[in-house]
Write a protein that binds this DNA or RNA. Structure first.
Lengths: 244, 244
DNA sequence: GCCGATTTGTCCGTATGTATC
DNA sequence: CGATACATACGGACAAATCGG
């Protein structure tokens, strides 16, 4: 449910583009026309458009107009430029996802964990190890570390569903941003076992590490996601800025 | 050289944050104070701030203020959320990069190339295969396809330097955006040979494929970048949006 | 080549809503 | 409750790029 005007305009235009209302490479209605269509100010239209630019859906061309450059992606892509839980991206890709909790424990960050995760030494943490299936195929092993003080009351049962759902709807936590890094690493015995990989086939996998912040500015989560290489896909749209 | 007010404010604040002018986790001056500092309107300040949010440098918190969440990255990261040429990122990471052209040829897109790159069948292309070194170590093999009609006069000599430099400064082309996908693929014999990889060590590598558009809305470049897995690093900052 | 109409880019000032303290 | 801070929205002004006559 979009709470603001520019969001609903953004959403509406996005859907129209996805449904092919505007031909590829053609111009959308001009800002002036959109103002009349949506009965709003120019700033509001421009704000919706700038979000679509960030998504790689359109280009705005001075003196010309707004061009549709959206092309549907055939494959199911795991991650796009926004923060999504596994459950959300499963739904977006119209697949049936399920989750199995391999480990659930509480621990205190020692020096090794602290330096790897960025949590301070001595911090009380939940550690959750989960296996995510898509269409009954194991695709991802997640190693989550949650700061206990920021995520109180986490249980194994919650972890079997959606932890993000718990954070946002039960704890009313606001997730703000997430710093992510993609690397390639050698597979471990755990990867090999649960992701059903064969070393002769692939001896490495894709790893996304992310540090997630809430509105209190605390990093409350550190996660390492280890992905089957043959199903891994990470998408991005980069916009060239004038001055660096 | 920032041409607009909000860009110079953005740049100034960014530098101050990087230089540690504001302590980590502390609040920056409020928008009202920034208006007076930079003698501008509130919109202009907010525009600069929103760019810093996208960079993962700050959080804006309603009712509270603007919090600095910038942390310097220790490792040399190859790519951030913007479009950079190899030359640019080498400079940013303060390393000495060099480039060797392995192949330079003109070709016409057959059905296979067309379906892989997204160029129309029959399109006239330049194909460039290059090896990029950082500190004398071969790190990346690039397979570039350029649309001949959009990039006329490309030569092997230009390819030995910076092609992007040629595009922007000589052809005065404006690069707008680039759609990128990160995947993991098996190594080929070419990878093994030029990147000096051992199959027993790593049998796959990180691949970034990108489709780059200019201001005429034409995709003029398709590139596949194959990265040594042990030196590959792709960074990103994702911002949680209210409505999906 | 010039001129005017159209379109996007930048910037300003103001008003109102909402969250925090 | 009031003061402060960010979020949304409106309207207006001028600049710069594009295009057709």
């Amino acid at each position: 449910m979009p709470r603001s005007k520019y969001e609903s305009i953004y959403k509406d235009l996005k859907e129209k583009i996805e449904e092919g209302e505007y031909p590829y490479q053609e111009l959308l209605p001009s800002e002036h026309q959109l103002i009349q269509t949506y009965d709003c100010s120019r700033n509001t239209v421009r704000r919706a458009l700038s979000n679509l630019v960030a998504d790689g859906y359109i280009q705005t061309l001075p003196g010309k107009g707004v061009r549709n450059i959206y092309q549907a992606v055939e494959q199911a892509s795991y991650t796009l430029g926004s923060i999504e839980s596994f459950r959300e991206s499963s739904l977006r890709n119209r697949r049936s996802g399920s989750t199995r909790v391999l480990q659930f424990m509480e621990l205190t960050a020692d020096r090794k964990i602290a330096s790897r995760t960025g949590f301070p030494e001595g911090a009380e943490l939940y550690y959750v190890q989960r296996l995510h299936y898509l269409d009954l195929k194991p695709l991802i092993i997640n190693h989550n570390y949650f700061l206990k003080s920021a995520v109180p009351g986490l249980t194994r049962e919650i972890a079997e569903g959606s932890i993000y759902n718990y954070l946002e709807n039960t704890l009313h936590m606001t997730i703000v941003n997430s710093k992510r890094t993609v690397t390639v690493e050698k597979i471990t015995q755990i990867d090999e076992k649960y992701l059903e990989l064969n070393v002769d086939d692939y001896n490495c996998l894709a790893v996304i590490t992310s540090q997630t912040y809430n509105s209190d500015g605390v990093m409350f989560e550190y996660t390492q996601s280890r992905h089957r290489p043959d199903y891994f896909r990470f998408q991005d749209n980069a916009v060239r800025r004038k001055s660096s």
